[in-house]
């Protein structure tokens, strides 16, 4: 699966990227993790508050920071 962390570079966005990495590690699933920072790509998903997590082109959540456990539950 492909996971995209959307965020313009705020502290929360970086924290979310770390949590996603941890979640993938602990769940043992295969995933490509990408950090998306450019505005047009973020807007393409209709996301208006960052950070947001996208799985295979579908927005899982936006505007909040979640724990690795919560993320693992969504994968």
């Amino acid at each position: 699966m492909k996971l995209e962390v959307l965020g313009t570079g705020c502290a929360k966005c970086k924290a979310l990227l770390e949590n996603v990495k941890k979640a993938v590690e602990t769940s043992g699933k295969e995933a490509e993790i990408v950090k998306v920072e450019d505005i047009p790509s973020i807007m393409k998903y209709g996301v208006m508050s960052t950070p947001a997590l996208v799985k295979d082109g579908k927005v899982l959540f936006s505007g909040k920071l979640t724990t690795p456990e919560e993320i693992a539950g969504m994968l």
């Binding site: 705020c10 929360k12 966005c13 505005i39 508050s49 960052t50």
Partner: peptide, 8 residues
């Protein structure tokens, strides 16, 4: 949050 001001 002002960091989301642009997408908003």
């Amino acid at each position: 949050c002002s960091c989301s001001a642009v997408p908003l």
